[in-house]
Write a protein that binds this DNA or RNA. Structure first.
Lengths: 188, 188
DNA sequence: ATCATTTCTTAACATTTGTAAAGTATAAAA
DNA sequence: TTTTATACTTTACAAATGTTAAGAAATGAT
């Protein structure tokens, strides 16, 4: 069992049969660098877990690409908007490197949720963990300065800076590339 | 069955026995105006639904009270941080009016989740819906101006402005009270 | 009703951030 | 390698926001 498999099933305690049902329903897919995984105006049919690669989610606002999420190995890629509301998502997900992803269709997952109580609680825990992450990022975004957030980013995900171009980091931090340059110059 | 009860059980399809188990485990509690519902450094034991009243969640940052959430009738009050991690939350929840809340203990809820698959999926849906809300607010916060966000707030929750003082609204929008005054003056 | 307190607005000034443009560095392509 | 394109930094200036302080409005208490 791969580290990714292990991470997926350790989200919540599962019975043997539930583990097999979940992992058995997943398949590995490969994408080239710069591939668009999700696009706006499409209802996304799959949930993905990143085995290898890096992903970026962004919205197209007034003439800008507004980056609001990065995913690396072990992270989940999921349009909750598209998934819950069964409407086209507002986000675009792009793969910044050649990537390998583990995927499972929403339809299959729904079937598993309605059959196995362990998997229903697994899905609950998954959503709850994602919610905490989003909530923490929201609070950080609103009440810390861009300088503090950049320092945190370096501390907590130092590899990200090396793998992602700074224009995307700037957008993610909610400042212009110029301001990010000034922040970086000031921290030296 | 009250409108709040109805809203709670319509989150996800439940069997009769599940509906009864969930609603039967809830109790109504009353709080005075300005009561502190959650405090930092305490692990919160209950989840609340607002029957009547209005609530505000905030963090204490460098000399500021940073408001990041308001709840009104029908909304859920839940410290996911405290709940999932079983650690003290970072947030304080204050009731801005005399309030009536429906509550259920985390412990009871966990028991229901492990017994009834319908309730496990109800809890999943609940977390997923909260996640979408948080995600949307995050994106709004990062990529819209304070003026746009204030206009949206008036459009979508007009009663909020009347029930909550503007310093809290300003904090919620991520700007100073002075800037909010300027925004309001500009929209006339 | 009157007084005291709190909240909101307005103004002046300082600071920060964005925009535009130029230059430098890096990476990709021929 | 040379050329081309892209990404990053720096500068100068404009626009927006924060801070402080003062006055107006609203609220609460006696």
């Amino acid at each position: 069992m791969s580290p990714l498999h292990h991470k997926i099933i350790s989200i919540s305690p599962l019975k043997q049969i539930e583990t097999e049902a979940l992992l058995g329903a997943m398949e590995m897919v490969s994408y080239a660098k710069n591939a668009i995984l999700f696009d706006t105006d499409k209802v996304e049919r799959y949930v993905y877990f990143i085995e290898k690669g890096i992903a970026r989610a962004y919205c197209n606002t007034h003439k800008q690409q507004a980056t609001f999420w990065f995913g690396q190995e072990g992270d989940i890629i999921l349009s909750y908007n598209s998934y819950i509301k069964e409407k086209p998502g507002y986000e675009i997900v792009e793969l910044l490197e050649a990537s390998q992803l583990l995927r499972i269709s929403h339809q299959t997952l729904q079937g598993l949720y309605s059959k196995h109580i362990g998997l229903a609680n697994w899905g609950r825990k998954l959503a709850e963990l994602e919610l905490i992450k989003t909530e923490e990022r929201f609070i950080n975004q609103q009440f810390k300065t861009a300088t503090e957030r950049y320092a945190e980013l370096i501390r907590e995900t130092p590899t990200l800076i090396q793998r992602v171009q700074l224009t995307h980091i700037a957008s993610y931090l909610g400042v212009s590339p110029v301001t990010l340059s000034r922040i970086r110059a000031g921290l030296k």
